[in-house]
Structure formats: C-alpha cells, structure tokens
Design a protein around this nucleic acid. Structure first.
Lengths: 312, 312
DNA sequence: TTTCAAACTAAAGATAAACTTTAGTAATGT
DNA sequence: ACATTACTAAAGTTTATCTTTAGTTTGAAA
C-alpha cells in the first residue's frame, strides 16, 4: 500500500472546503493565507490537477476532489478525535509558589495564553487554582530568591496613578508638582528596607519635600492598584505589574520612566530538579522565559523611550 | 473544533504500530530510522505521554494510545484512499518525438525513475509507449533542432568496444594500435556530413592509416552497441549513449576520453507552448533538465579525468 | 464606469521543521 | 564472547514551510 504524502496540504484542503475561504483556514491554523495557498498549491502541483475552484464567492472542490471529499473529511475528523483523546489523557499538574503580587499581577493575566494551548495542564499557584495543594516542594518557585537562581527580569519602580489624576497634574507647579497629593504605599515599602517607595523616590527625583511617607498603606499591590485605577492617589510600583493596565490606559505613568528606582532584586525562577524533566514543566518554563523576555523588552523599551520622549 | 497538529508524527505512529518496527516505517517512508524515532518522540514530548512501547520484540501501543488506535488506522486508511483516488484521476499523456538513438539509449533507461514517481503519466515516445500516437505536434521534441531551442547537453564522440577487446589492445603497437581492427560504423556517419565517425577520429588522433571507412554499417546505434557488447568490433559513438554501459562495464572506452570528437550540435529540447502549462509536462521537463544536467556533469567529469588519468 | 476593499497569488527571503550523520546503547542470536 | 540488529542522542545540515511585500482579480459600492 502506498503512503500518503502532503499531509499538511490535505489538511489545508479539507479545511478550505469546510471553511469556504483560505483566510479562514489561515486563521484557524495560525498561519498566513499565503501559506495556506501554498499548501494547497503544492498538492495540486504534485498531482497535476486543480483541486480547489477559487470562485468568486467561496471555494469549491473540483470534480476530481468531489469523489474523495467524504474520505477526506472522515480522515481528519478521526484525527481530531485521536488528538483530543490523547490530549485529555495527558492531564498533568504544575505547582507554583510565587511572590503574591507577581502571581496576581504579572502571571495571572498572562497565563491564560498558555492554558489555551495546554488545556490539560492544571495549575496550583500559591495554593489556589485548578488543583489542591500538594505536600512537599512545589515544581516552580518565583520570587527574590538566591542569587544563583535564574533571573527572569529586573523590574523598575515608577509612580503610577489613575487616568483622571494626570489631567490635573499639568496645572501644578512643575517644581513642587506633587506637594500635598494623596500618596498610596505598600506595607513592604515601610517594613522592608529592600523595597523602595515614595520616600526614596522623592529623595531621588524631588517634586515634593514634605510627608513622603504619609497616606494609606496597602498590603497587596493588587488592592493598591485598584485604588489607583479609581484615581484615589499615586503609588510607586513595579513597572512589570502594570504593563497591561498601562497599555489599556487604565493606569497612567505620570513621569518619564527614566525617573525610576531599580528594584533591588530581579524576579528569579527556580525549578525543582525532579520536575525539570517533565515535559509539561519544560513547556511551561519555556513559555515563562519567553513571556518574561517580552516583559524585559517592554521595560527596556519604555525606559529608553522616556530618555528622549518627555511625555508622561 | 481544534485542529490536528503533528500530522507526520501521527502517521509515523500509525505505521509503526502496523509495521512493528521503526526501521520498517523508515523504509516505507524513505527516511532514516532515526527520523522516524524523532517523529514519534516529538509527539510524545508534545503530549507528555509515552505512546509507543519500544519492546525487545516489536513495538506496542501504550494504554493511552490503545483507545485511539481504531480512529488512527481509520484516518490514515481514508487518507490513503483519498490520495490513491486523486492519483488515479490525474492520468495524463505526454507525447514525445525524439532522436531515435537518444530515445532508445539515453531516455529509455532513465525514464523509469520518473515513471515510478509518476505512475499516472503515460508516454508516447516516437509513436510507441503506453498510449497511441495523437494527431498534431507532440508536447516535447528532442533532437538537433533550431539553435534557439534549449540545449540539454553536448555530446562527445568516443571509440567504444567490448570488454574482451580491450584486454587484447594492450599488446598492440602503441602507434598503430588499431591497424586492421574490425570497425563498426553508423549509417549517419557515412551519409551525414554533420556526423563524425572513424574517418574523422583517425584523422585527428592517428592510431591507424588505412581503411578507416571499412566495416559494417548499422542504421541504429542500439544495434551497433549490441554488437560492440559482444566484442564484434570498435565503434565511434556518443558518450552520453553508453554511460550506463560504461559504468556497468559491459562497454569499454579504450582510449582516454580526451581523445574525442565534439558532436556538432547539442541535443536540444523544444516544448510546445501549449503543453508548457500542463503541470505534468512541467514536471517531466524539470526531470529531463535534471537528468540531462547529470549527464552533462558525467561527461565533463570523464573528459576531465582523462586529462590526467591515462587509463582507458 | 470608476473606485475600493477583500481575498487570493507570486516571488523572495527568513525561519523553523525535518532529516541525516555519527556515535553509542541495549537486546538477541551465533 | 562477539557480531548483529534495532533503536537513541546530539549535532549539524538540508529542506520545507512560512512570512513579507507587492501585485492581481473579483465583486460591490459610489
């Protein structure tokens, strides 16, 4: 019996007939329409027959293909069943312990992308998630741990505020702009010597001389940011934790990013040696490195932009 | 509905279970066993589960895969039906008119390789072949036609003889080696001014002074070469037409190939403009150019070798 | 009719997948 | 013990595939 070649072409063909347009297929496959066209053409060239009538409204199979359509659809339906069945059987848990702020504000909004691709991987992050806690050490730890652990990215601490506050700021005295403004703080900024806040920021960049430690103290950055979004006041906070809010405009960075404090430690990743071998963990770590790389790049970009561009 | 990835892996997997060994799959697919192993592993890594139990005697599916086996086999059986059905429908004829010697001695032994890959393409070469002649001009002409046609390769005319004759030749007078030898000729070498033979060869390279036009005259090179193979005598003949015989040793080139006459014209290819668009014709022409390129290279190599290496 | 937008195509270059090679391991038979 | 067979690992190379950019075609709207 002969062996089927051009599997990808056949798949593209089958989908094209079901979807009715190459563009739709391209979207489903996550490639460009040109690539889909090439897949189909490659098979047509190989066979020396047209298979797809690229008509004005939609696509139709040619007579040659018509005979095979049933088998074609059947084959790929069966393959979908196979992969889905195999997919469901590979359920696997990943247990993570991470800095709570980072987990809530950086990881949580990003992890959905990973989970879509890997619906079979279940998470337990800081005790919560798809699966209950497990005894023993977690598969992955992220925080400000040993200097020998792999760094993910180094954060910059910048003032942030709500979108309404920034409209007012323009009117203020440019030298003492923030005198008397409502400041928000994190408890760690008061309790932890390693966690710079408004006190250090005003020391470095000025803008205010009095009461740099006055104002509400929040335990979790998430709650502080919620207040910020509602224009309650100004907070010094890790840039990485507000990138999405900043992009959507729900949070504003009122000063050039060049006016930042460097976080004393980078976020660091530690994978339990035992877990390192599991392909699911490997995949997640690869994804994590990648996403962290994106964030690093975004931070660098913002810092670089603000050197020249003085809008805030 | 999700889309199936790792199609080639699934195919390899399916075949592995049917065939019982990766090596067997490799042979069927025309790749190395290592490649098959990688295909399967790539899917296993992606899923994070083992799928194939590589046992001492043969391969077995794991429990995970067991559930999907039926669909898996069904899917690829259906795809084989699809491709075979599409294959059979693409029957197509290519009509060729070519120099008879070239068709018999160069094209015929090479075309099988093409036909294996394209069993659906049927040929009519100089009126004979899979399909009967057709009215009108052929799709492809090959011969010594207009100088504007695409050249395939230029031949060299060299003396050839049978394997037994060459053993004797060593004893002969090196200056007049071939005096009195049985010479074979082609009718064209006598009738056609453009077709050099023994007369011109002895004029150029010596080795004999008398009776260069004596001996049997053959109409077709094929028949002359059959005589040569049976050590009937010596013939001047296109190198391209005896390459295979030369390689197998059934025909011998008794002098260095540097002692050759250049064929006055290259073999030229002309494709009917109309036919040029047909993908089957395109594929055949592409194959032809490629095979001609191989021959050109082989000829050049032999000519170059003989400059330094004086064994004949 | 002209103009525009959407979908597809062509060609080239860039990227990523797939394959081969070489070397090595483990099991099986001589 | 030794050779043989089948598989595996890792590296490097080749090939396939994809993206990009620009251009064509089609069908609808102005």
């Amino acid at each position: 019996m002969s062996v089927t070649t051009h599997l990808k072409s056949l798949q593209a063909l089958e989908m094209a007939i079901r979807e009715g347009s190459l563009k739709a297929v391209a979207d489903r496959l996550g490639i460009t329409p040109a690539a889909v066209g090439q897949r189909v053409r490659s098979l047509e060239d190989y066979l020396g027959t047209d298979l797809l009538l690229r008509g004005r409204s939609g696509l139709k199979p040619t007579a040659e293909l018509e005979h095979s359509l049933k088998d074609l659809h059947m084959a790929f339906a069966a393959l979908v069943r196979v992969t889905e069945s195999l997919d469901f059987q590979r359920v696997s848990e990943i247990h993570i312990v991470a800095d709570p702020d980072w987990a809530e504000l950086w990881l949580a909004p990003r992890i959905d992308g990973f989970r879509e691709e890997h619906p079979h991987i279940q998470f337990c992050i800081n005790g919560a998630g798809d699966v209950p806690v497990r005894l023993g050490t977690p598969d992955i730890r992220i925080g400000f741990s040993d200097a020998q652990d792999e760094p993910l990215f180094s954060d910059l601490l910048v003032p942030v505020t709500g979108p309404d506050n920034v409209r007012r700021i323009a009117d203020w005295d440019p030298v003492m702009q923030m005198e008397g403004l409502p400041l928000l703080h994190l408890q760690a900024q008061r309790d932890d010597d390693d966690c710079p806040g408004w006190v250090e920021w005003f020391q470095t960049f000025g803008h205010r001389k009095t009461g740099p430690d006055r104002g509400v103290h929040y335990k979790h950055t998430r709650l502080a940011l919620e207040a910020v979004r509602e224009n309650v006041g100004f907070l010094v906070c890790g840039l990485s934790l507000v990138l999405r809010d900043y992009e959507s405009g729900s949070i504003v960075i009122p000063f050039p990013v060049s006016q930042h404090l460097k976080a004393p430690h980078p976020y660091r990743l530690k994978v339990r040696p035992d877990s390192e071998k599991r392909p699911q963990v490997q995949r997640f770590v690869a994804w994590l490195r990648n996403a962290a790389g994106d964030t690093r790049r975004q931070i660098e970009e913002l810092a670089a932009q603000s050197d020249t561009d003085q809008t805030g």
